[in-house]
Amino acid sequence: MKGMVFTEFIDMVEQRFSPELMDEVIEAAAPPNGGAYTAVGQYDHHELVKMVVELSARTGVAIPDLVRTFGEYLFGRFHQGYPHLFEGMGSAFQMLSSIESIIHPEVRKLYPDARPPHFDIGGDGVNTLEMTYRSDRHFGDLAEGLIRACIEHFDERIALAREDLVDAPGSVIRFVLTRQNA
């Protein structure tokens, strides 16, 4: 997993909780590098999982809630750091539909060794959008947080339903977004 995800997680915890708590989390998780992450480095995603587990134990916030919150935070950071990806995007459906055609190819240009999750996109694209998330890293809650933040960013009335597809290998989740009438 790209180091940028780790550095952003550390920044979020330091901002929302405290630098001291982040130090405790890193010490307890005991990553091989001692918690010294660089944005361009590549790290085992299990290190992030250990830090989330330690953060949950210290805050009492459920792991899925922490990961969704991180996804929401990360969306804001993407918007600040990569504004060109948002140019010409007029709606959440338009942005989310472009994940595999525009956003992930851009990610791979910036970070050739990145392995973003895969999304199968369906629905009519007008009133409904179906996104099937596939990843062997099981960060569906992170994806959900990113999706929720995207909806909020465009200030749209969109209902989000989630279906974990347990019979599928790895982490496969179907997100169904439905426009709500005003």
Rank of each mutant, 00 (worst) to 15 (best):
R68L: 06
V52C: 06
I63W: 13
G88T: 07
K109T: 12
S97P: 03
F70M: 07
Y73S: 01
R108Q: 11
E152Q: 14
D65S: 08
I102R: 13
L85V: 04
H118L: 13
S91H: 06
L129S: 02
H153D: 09
H118K: 11
L85E: 02
I63C: 09
G88A: 07
T128L: 06
S56E: 08
L142K: 01
E130D: 15
G125M: 14
Y82M: 12
T59M: 08
D136M: 10
Y133G: 00
F86W: 10
E152H: 08
V107L: 10
R58I: 10
N127Q: 09
L110E: 14
C150T: 08
A57S: 14
H118A: 15
P112A: 12
D136R: 12
D120S: 14
G123W: 07
I63T: 14
D65L: 15
V67Q: 04
P105W: 14
V61R: 07
T132H: 08
Y133T: 02
V107C: 15
V53T: 11
R77G: 03
F93K: 01
D136W: 09
G90Y: 04
V126G: 05
G140Q: 06
V53F: 14
H79E: 11
I151M: 01
S101T: 12
H79A: 12
A114G: 14
A57Y: 15
D65W: 08
N127A: 10
R115I: 14
M51G: 02
A62P: 08
V126K: 11
I121M: 07
P112T: 13
I121H: 04
E100F: 05
E130I: 03
V126W: 08
G123T: 07
G81L: 11
E72G: 04
Y133N: 00
C150S: 09
V107K: 07
R148P: 00
V67L: 15
D113Y: 09
E130H: 07
I63H: 09
G71S: 06
H153G: 03
G76R: 02
G125I: 05
L74F: 14
D141C: 04
S97R: 06
S101W: 09
M95W: 02
Y73V: 05
F70T: 02
S56P: 07
P116S: 12
E72P: 00
I147G: 00
G145R: 01
R134D: 07
D141H: 13
Q80V: 11
Q80R: 11
E106S: 12
N127C: 12
E144G: 03
Y111V: 11
H79K: 13
F75V: 02
D124T: 08
L146A: 04
G122K: 04
D136K: 13
G88W: 11
V107T: 12
T132Q: 15
K50N: 14
H104C: 08
G90P: 02
F119I: 06
H153V: 02
M51V: 06
A62Q: 10
Q94K: 09
R115T: 09
A92K: 00
I147M: 03
H118N: 13
T69E: 07
I99T: 05
L110F: 12
E152L: 05
F119Q: 01
V67D: 03
C150W: 00
P112D: 13
I99M: 11
A143Q: 02
I121Q: 05
E87C: 06
L55H: 03
P105E: 08
E72L: 01
P83M: 15
P117M: 11
D120A: 15
I99E: 02
L96T: 01
I99Q: 04
L96R: 01
